[in-house]
Design a binder for these strands. Structure first.
Length: 651
RNA sequence: GCCACUGUGGCUUAGGGGUAUAGCAUCCCAUUGGUAAUGGGAAGGUCGGGAGUUCAAAUCUCCCCAGUGGCUCCA
């Protein structure tokens, strides 16, 4: 028998009989408990059953590595399909990919509920215990067609994906077989640490005109600890939920009589919102922005001119017929800002012109997508549009990227990254403008980012219909990525709105580039993320209640009033609780409103004109002079500090 | 909009065919208290809305509405 030489890890090459399987090699070198679920053979992912026939290198793929988890989750999706097709013989599996934290599988079948989910989970566990081998089988086209003959969805995939290629593989475990390229875990016992989480409806090929499918989600990990950690993360994220905290702190309300997706800012939330606005107004003053206010509705012709109506109609509220024409609620501010720009003759000396507005726009989001402040139908935006020459685009983008970085630093966000959002050249119908213009402007943005040395990722198909953009992506407590801020380049507006300026030569120049930017997202979204990030314990300058005064007994009412008056004079938001309750109870009650500081006032404090402090993190200190407290908290507020300036001296 | 689940006083919640639990908050009385539950008492809901089944519905059925998770979409 011929021998082959196999390099494995940093070890000396081993000699094996030709035809030995990957699994045997790993077993030989790393033993039974290697933790491997597959291997890289000369850099290509292979199953344990793959037979080695030439000299090669073998590197185990461990179950808790990214690649290993991907394989486990993929195998777990097969396990799900095995259980489902067994319990529901009419169910047709379609596709079942691994995703972050787990997997899903879409079935053509009747919708199922939670009870069925538990039954399926039980069946899956049975198969785990049975420890079926997961066996790869090779087929030619005709053979494969036979395997999936009664599944039109699989046949459709096969026709599309395999095309000219001859043959492909399927994986068998017990009685179940599924067309798949693999690789997979060697047996079902590797799939112990999973949990089915939810069901949903999806459409075949994500097309609502095609067959509705039942999607089943699960999570899957290599170890018990991994699964547990994820469950804990979900639980922790629940504690940060802005909907829960928003209710506790009375930030906003949603009343069904007003309508869903239409939040009302309650006094405490309004404070957050106006502090954010104030910060933005100050910042934009230094960057040279001009503020305007535009109407919430406008004539149909305006949105036809902007191109929104043909491209964006689904996202706009339905039209209103008036006696003098058809009106729409605005879903964006840009068309009106363009008209502001056009309102008078502009000179090259005036550019760039930056028009800013705190406006509300209205978008007709699908009712099922609305949730808390994260997805609403009325959006308050710190919006602005910059009108400039091509030469000025780079510095304007740079300014905005810097602005975003400064804002995020002040608000304490670090969990974000930049994304260059490009058009999809395969699907050009969605966009306006010429192919060359898109490519040129996209390259322009890429160069700006490269020159700035900013880390970013690229995303095809995420551009706005009028141009490419730089999005700032935020990672939530659940580990999910959400769009937060955006800086967009628009090369279409100049033609649609006939924007122009008088250039150095005295000629009317129509090369006006427009930048749409909203560095603070929408107030709704921003407050939702802020709440989650700080778990409601906002930095003092944002805190709706900056100081909650609590008296020890009714004897100290007068001193409490004095302290409160002094704080108010200093511009601090303060509330007093001088009610007849124990100190412990008052602290417990006010904790839920998360004041930045609680001041405990009793005999000692009244006599010495001092305060005792209990900060939002629970730390406390005594005997601080009232004047010191006022000057320190004032500084903390005016600096917009995220730290507690009044570091406790004792506990 | 689509699929699943959920909907009980301000909040959290028990119950699940014979007209409703409890805690917190609220109000009153006593207590004047030193940093996450002082004691006692009172008031408050017809069980998201509507229709139906039944002698009888919060409890079963249907239709709406809203919330949650997901699809889709997206700031």
């Amino acid at each position: 028998m011929s021998m082959i030489s196999v390099e494995i890890g940093s070890e000396e090459p081993h000699e094996y009989a030709n035809g030995i399987s990957v699994g045997e090699v790993i077993l030989n070198v790393h033993g039974k408990r290697s933790g491997a679920v597959a291997a890289l053979v000369d850099g290509i992912e292979r199953d344990f059953s793959y037979e080695l026939e030439t000299d090669c290198s073998v590197e185990p793929i461990l179950g808790d590595s990214d690649a290993g988890l991907y394989i486990l989750r993929h195998s777990c999706a097969h396990l799900l399909a095995q259980a489902v097709t067994e319990l529901f013989p009419d169910a047709k599996p379609t596709i079942g990919p691994p995703i972050d934290h787990g997997f899903y599988y879409d079935f053509y079948m009747d919708p199922i509920g939670d009870e069925e989910l538990r039954v399926i989970e039980k069946k899956m566990n049975e198969h785990v215990r049975a420890n079926h081998k997961i066996v790869r089988e090779e087929f030619d086209n005709a053979g494969l067609r036979e395997v999936i003959a009664d599944n039109k969805f699989k046949l459709e995939i096969m026709d599309e994906k395999i095309g000219e290629e001859v043959g492909s593989s399927a994986y068998r475990q017990g009685d179940f077989i599924d067309m798949c390229r693999g690789p997979h875990a060697p047996s079902t016992s590797h799939l112990r640490f999973f949990k089915l989480t939810s069901t949903s409806q999806a459409y075949w090929r994500a097309d609502s005109k095609r067959e509705p499918l039942t999607r089943i989600y699960g999570m899957c990990y290599a170890t018990k600890e991994g699964l547990k950690a994820r469950q804990q993360q979900i639980q922790e994220a629940g504690k940060r939920d802005h909907k829960k905290i928003g209710k506790e702190m009375e930030l906003y309300m949603i009343d069904e009589l007003i309508g869903k997706g239409l939040p009302v800012w309650l006094p405490n939330g309004e404070i957050l919102k106006s502090e954010i606005e104030r910060f933005a107004v100050e910042t934009e003053e230094t960057y040279g922005y001009d503020r305007v206010t535009t109407p919430v509705l406008a004539k149909q012709q305006l949105f036809e001119c902007s191109g929104h109506l043909p491209h964006y109609a689904d996202s706009m509220y339905p039209p209103m017929e008036m006696d003098d024409g058809t009106y729409y609620l605005k879903a964006m501010n840009c068309p009106m800002h363009h008209l502001v720009f056009r309102n008078k003759k502009r000179s090259y000396r005036d550019l760039p012109i930056r028009i800013a507005e705190y406006g509300t726009v209205y978008r007709n989001e699908l009712s099922g997508t609305l949730t808390g402040l994260l997805r609403v139908r009325m959006l308050s935006m710190n919006d602005a549009h910059i009108y400039c020459t091509l030469d000025q685009v780079a510095s304007e983008f740079a300014d905005n990227i810097r602005m975003v970085q400064d804002y995020y630093a002040t608000f304490g966000f670090t969990n974000y990254h930049f994304r260059l959002s490009l058009w999809d050249p395969e699907n050009t119908d969605k966009y306006i403008g010429q192919h060359e213009t898109w490519e040129a402007t996209q390259n322009h943005l890429r160069k700006i980012l490269d020159d700035l040395g900013v880390d970013y990722v690229e995303a095809v198909g995420e551009a706005a219909f009028y141009g490419p953009k730089i999005d700032i992506q935020f990672t939530t407590a659940l580990g999910r990525e959400e769009s937060m801020s955006t800086i967009q380049l628009d090369f279409a507006a100049k033609e649609r709105f006939e924007l122009s300026y008088k250039d150095e030569t005295g000629a009317e120049n129509s090369e006006v580039f427009v930048i749409h930017r909203a560095p603070l997202s929408t107030h709704e979204r921003f407050v939702a993320f802020l709440t989650e990030h700080w778990i409601g314990n906002f930095p003092t300058w944002l805190s709706p209640i900056q100081v909650q005064v609590i008296t020890i007994s009714e004897k100290h009412k007068e001193y409490a009033a004095e302290v409160s008056a002094a704080l108010k004079t200093a511009g601090v938001r303060v509330k007093v609780d001088d009610s007849d309750a124990t100190i412990g109870k008052k602290i417990r009650m006010h904790r839920k409103m998360r004041p930045a500081y609680m001041l405990i006032l009793g005999e000692e404090e009244a006599t010495g004109s001092t305060v005792s402090i209990r900060a939002r993190n629970g730390d406390q200190c005594k005997g601080i002079s009232l004047n010191d407290f006022i000057s320190q908290i004032s500084e903390e507020i005016s600096n917009r500090s995220g730290e507690l300036a009044l570091v406790p001296s004792e506990k």
